[in-house]
Amino acid sequence: MKRFSLVALFSFVTLIGCSSESNSTAPEGTPSVELLNVSYDPTRELWKDINAEFEKVAVAQTGKAVTIKQSHGASGSQARAVIDGLDADVVSLALWSDTEQLHKKGLLKDGWIDAFPNRSLPYTSTIVFVVRKGNPKGVKEWADLVRNDIQVITPNPKTSGNGKLAFLAAWGSVLKNGGTEEDARKYITQLYKQVPVLDTGARGATTTFAQKGIGDVHLTWENEAHLEIKEANGELDLIYPSQSILAEPHVALVDQVVDRKGTRDVVKKYLEFLYTPEGQAIIAKHFYRPTDAKVLEAHKASFPDLKLFPVTDVCGGWDEAQTTFFADGGEFDRIYEGGQNK
């Protein structure tokens, strides 16, 4: 046993040392580089496709054989991990506030949002409804969610981007229909009383709804909804409310990490690839709304029109949303604790 362990230790150290081989078809002698993209929960499939495409063209574009590793989780937790030392070259988080968190800690330079086209937004998205087959409960609008026969699945707004966006979309839907802030508070309090499980991340909530079969409506990313429905083999349906929130998942290059690792040029090429027609087409294929007008037009059938309101229509902006709604002791804590006690 002990001898085996020693052998294992030895092979471990050696193998860890050389386990970073690349799978691209670069000619021998090409320097190789490994990037880490730290992203939010439902983008696994998107980045897998994009990374595979970029790895193919990378040698020609950068002169290096590029391998891209992925890490996924709840957006807020992922930001936290990067701050704690997860070596991300790129962050592609769900919300501006999560990315800005890294800027506040000095990992991103000032003006990071303008480092890439379109305010560093290769795509936008929104929050939609997924219901059981045939929509048995007849859910169509945000107002339907607080009917007392309905259970809602949405992840925790404290950790999840999906959770925050769903909260803000719900709150905003009341304001947009002429309601007051007090109306919104009442509505939201009732809504979260009808949430049986609060998962940490978007994918966890999807599993709860689709695989464990809990709840009547799942408030989720548009892209996640499409994937969820495809995987459910006709057991689930997608419902577009007449309005929802405009989600802006920014991409950013983590200055502190790329400068230490010397990967800045490659990372720039990688993120610029997202804005090329090829990159945008992959984005559209995964049901993220491409920011390139031409590509969006070409995939128009996939993206029904609905009124998308920005976070600034709900409150002053992400900083304010964070402090009033999601910070410890904020609006969400108060209504959720209140709701659970009753």
Binding site: K2, F4, S5, L6, A8, L9, S11, F12, L15, N23
Partner: peptide, 22 residues
Amino acid sequence: RDTQHSIFLTVVLAPVAVLLNT
């Protein structure tokens, strides 16, 4: 590849941890 690597990692990490704990 990721699955392969996870098996490799566990099969190697566990005995090393056991050795240290022994």
